[in-house]
Nucleic acid binder design. Sequence first.
DNA 1: CCCCATGTTGTAGG
DNA 2: TCCTACAACATGGG
Length: 261
Amino acid sequence: MPELPEISLFKDYLNATSLNKKITAIEFLHTGSLQSPKEEFIKAFKGKKFKNGIRLGKYLLIETTGDKALVMHFGMTGKIEYYKNQDPPKYSRVVFSFEDNDHLAYLSQRKLGKLFIAEGLEDFRESQELGKDALELTEKEFLELLEDKTGSIKGVLTDQHVLAGIGNLYSDEMLYQSKIHPKTKTNAISEKDKKQLFKQMKKVLEKAIEKEGVREDFPNSYLIKHRKGGKDCPACKGKIKQIKVSGRSTYFCPSCQKEEK
DNA sequence: CCCCATGTTGTAGG
DNA sequence: TCCTACAACATGGG
């Protein structure tokens, strides 16, 4: 699930369920995601409370009553699940148990997610060399970021070091909504189109948060509902095409999104 | 069996 | 330096 909109939902979910309760135990069903030894996690978080979840690109940073923050990354298939009185959900890798006997599980089916211990928000941002969050960017900053880039626009949008939060699914969507071919060289895009892309970037991310990432609930004019090679483009009745851009499967409409070089 | 999947990272080459 | 292609990680679904 996890690009910026999904992490935003995880953040709200965490803040609604798991704050201000003492963590009485941390159980590790699989340690592959840990970026520090598990003893360090126990030392940093056992006996502490989660105070506040903050989204940072595709990362969820959780401030605690201790002096360390817990950071979750979800890879391609991760999520969190709050539960009580039952076995951990399938694919649970780490389980935090609270003083009221409820639990928060960190799940990662494909084990591509990561858990970090961080000093704080800025510190973590720097250590990961993360770009500014896509939802916090101003138009001016966005235009400046694209300024000197020669690579494909899709590659730039999904480069977390340039701007943080956009992945494969939603980059295709905002390019489709902006009628820009994903392979277009970034510095070949007109000022007008870049401003349009900025607008669509915000709109698409906000719409996805509003719809809670549920594909079926998006407007029919969204590519996400037709994201498969050979399907009809909702705007022009052409066929959606699949290609590879920046190593990722990319879907677009060849007649709406003309390739300009 | 094959290919595909909302991510990241390291390597090799132009 | 910057960019692209590709493999690797690990697992499940069609």
